[in-house]
Every structure is written in C-alpha cells, then in structure tokens.
Amino acid sequence: MNDEYDARLADLEARVHALEAARPAESPTADVGESLGQIGYQGTVDLGGEIQWTIRYDAGATLDLSPTAVSNVLAALGHPTRLEIVRTLLRGPSGAAELQTAVGLSSPGQLYHHLRALGGARIVEQESRNHYRIAAAKVVPLLVITLAAADVGEHPL
C-alpha cells in the first residue's frame, strides 16, 4: 500500500473513532430530559483498506450549527465545477494541471479561482506546491453531502 494512502487511512480511522467515542451533545432546543432524536450516517468505504463507520449527532444540536460555517461549505460545493473538482480529489490527490484537464477548464486562473473557494470552505487542502487533496477526515462527510443533496433534489442513485 502507498504511504500517502496509509497516512490518510490512519487519519480517517482515528477521527472516526474519536467521533464515535464522543457522546452526542445535548440540544439546547430540547427540554431537559427530552430528545429530538438523532441524525447520523454510516457506511463502508475502501480507501486502500475497508473502513466502516457510524456517526451520530443529537438532532436538535444540528439545528444550532453555525449558519455561516454550513452555508460556506454548501456555497463552495454549489458550483458544478467545484463539485467536479471535489469528486476528482475524492479519488485521490492531484496536481493543478491534472485537475484543470479533468474538469475541463481552459485556464489555470479559472482552476485557482475555484480552488480558493474550496480552500476557504476548508474542503480542499494544498498538499504541496500545485498539488491538492481532500483531508481523509473529510472524505466520508463529502460523500454523504453529495448523496444527501441528490436525495433532496430527488435524484437518488
């Protein structure tokens, strides 16, 4: 197995373990002892080794998440080219030239414009000069966001 993928896999496993070990936060919108329920996601992904995960949060607490943080991520993903960049990077890190070709952009300036938006939303990281990646801990949530958006838009798999 490739050292880069081993590191990504280990990072993802550690973060998932930490999330699973954490108790869901109490919702400030619920009365003491009253729960609005749980929201979560689960699945299996193979990133050079099979990972199974289950992540759950208090449903009421999700209603109190920062609207700015959530809307920044959704806005960054809301552009078709940016979504295609993310899909490409979910398959593995890539250089700028490869990304530009993969998403069909005619100039590096267009690519960097989109990468700035994705970086500002903390979706894409610059791993080295002109080389980009998705942090291992963000792979699963980004896959879930994509699927959830398809469900909301009534375009399931």
Rank of each mutant, 00 (worst) to 15 (best):
M1D: 15
N2G: 10
Y5D: 15
Y5K: 14
A7S: 14
R8P: 12
A10K: 08
D11E: 12
E13R: 04
A14R: 05
A14H: 07
A14T: 02
V16W: 02
H17F: 10
A18D: 01
E20F: 00
E20R: 00
E20C: 00
A21D: 02
P24H: 00
A25S: 05
A25C: 03
E26L: 12
S27M: 06
S27K: 03
S27G: 08
P28K: 00
T29D: 15
T29M: 09
D31A: 07
V32M: 12
V32N: 13
V32Y: 12
E34L: 10
L36N: 04
G37Y: 03
Q38V: 09
Q38A: 08
I39M: 03
Y41A: 01
Y41L: 00
V45Q: 01
V45K: 00
D46S: 12
D46A: 05
L47C: 08
L47D: 14
G49F: 04
E50Q: 13
E50Y: 06
Q52P: 04
T54E: 07
Y57K: 06
D58E: 09
A59F: 06
A59K: 05
L63W: 14
D64R: 09
L65W: 13
L65C: 12
L65S: 09
A69D: 13
N72G: 15
V73G: 03
A75Q: 13
A76P: 11
L77G: 04
G78W: 00
T81S: 04
R82Q: 06
R82Y: 06
R82T: 06
R82M: 02
E84K: 10
V86W: 04
V86E: 05
V86I: 05
R87F: 05
T88A: 13
L89V: 04
L90N: 02
S94R: 11
E98N: 12
Q100D: 11
Q100I: 13
T101F: 09
T101N: 12
G104E: 08
G104P: 06
G104W: 05
L105W: 07
S106P: 09
S106C: 08
S107H: 07
P108V: 05
P108H: 13
G109R: 14
Q110T: 11
Q110F: 07
L111S: 04
Y112D: 11
L115E: 06
L118R: 08
L118V: 10
L118S: 08
G119Y: 06
G119E: 15
G119V: 15
G120F: 10
G120P: 14
A121C: 06
A121N: 14
R122I: 13
R122E: 15
V124Y: 06
Q126R: 12
S128E: 06
N130S: 13
N130A: 13
Y132K: 05
Y132P: 11
R133C: 13
I134P: 00
A135H: 04
A137Y: 03
A137S: 08
A137L: 13
K138I: 03
K138T: 09
P141C: 04
P141Y: 03
L142V: 03
L143P: 00
V144S: 02
V144P: 03
V144A: 07
V144K: 02
V144R: 02
V144H: 01
L147W: 06
V152E: 04
V152L: 09
E154F: 03
H155G: 07
H155T: 10
P156F: 01
L157M: 07
